[in-house]
Design a protein around this nucleic acid. Structure first.
Lengths: 121, 121
DNA sequence: CCGCATCCGTGCGGATACTG
DNA sequence: CAGTATCCGCACGGATGCGG
């Protein structure tokens, strides 16, 4: 089950569930925030790393390669430089996910606001 | 970190991230499908269990109690019966999540369709 | 009918060191 | 600069049994 694509993972309930496919794609400690970065513009690897305090190179590589396997982002490697320059940007599929990510972010913000009075009592 | 509410969990990147709050609420093997069931109508515990092939009582209880802690669903207990009758339904917060769940489901379906030609080659 | 307690395997993510 | 390799702790979820 390791290294499997999200599209192959969503048969957990017997049938293939599109909702779980989407959730699986977003599942990973740094994926959501990486998508938030990449929806602004493309990023270099180290540049991206610097915007993610607490994220190790290992984790960044893992999350990026999973997003790449799921065709949400693409890596571009420019070998005409030494050391090599790589950059990451959203694919069409990745861009089509942006409105949903924004909707989830907005829902979460409202949820947290509404929750404060409940938590405080 | 165990038994923590989703609202308390989303500080992983230092700042509180509403997007991660939303993802955390949906994070759990059976939560998405439970929400799919409860958006139709309320369910009894065992009735719900029968619609989730492969889900154990332990897992159903776990997922339900987490959704309850996050104020997405409410449990109603009718003690006038023996054995006790319990049922679960969406809260206002839970109902407000439905459009997003539907959007994710739709996005996932389109994603899987588009992927088939890519995977096949 | 509706759970909770316990034990346990597996995989995620942290820490650290190494490389083209 | 942009990764990979290895080791490891811990939480998630499966299996099973008990209880109000």
């Amino acid at each position: 089950m390791i290294g499997m694509k999200a599209s192959e993972m969503s048969r957990r309930h017997g049938e293939l569930c599109p909702l779980d496919t989407t959730l699986k794609i977003l599942d990973g400690k740094w994926k959501s925030i990486i998508l938030c970065r990449l929806m602004k513009h493309e990023f270099r690897y180290t540049e991206l790393l610097r915007t993610l305090p607490g994220c190790t190179r290992r984790m960044l590589s893992l999350q990026l390669s999973q997003l790449e396997n799921d065709r949400i982002i693409v890596k571009q490697t420019d070998t005409s430089y030494v050391p090599v320059k790589t950059s990451y940007r959203l694919t069409p599929a990745g861009r089509s996910l942006v409105p949903i990510v924004l909707a989830m972010n907005k829902w979460g913000a409202t949820y947290l606001e509404r929750l404060i009075p409940v938590e405080a009592k």
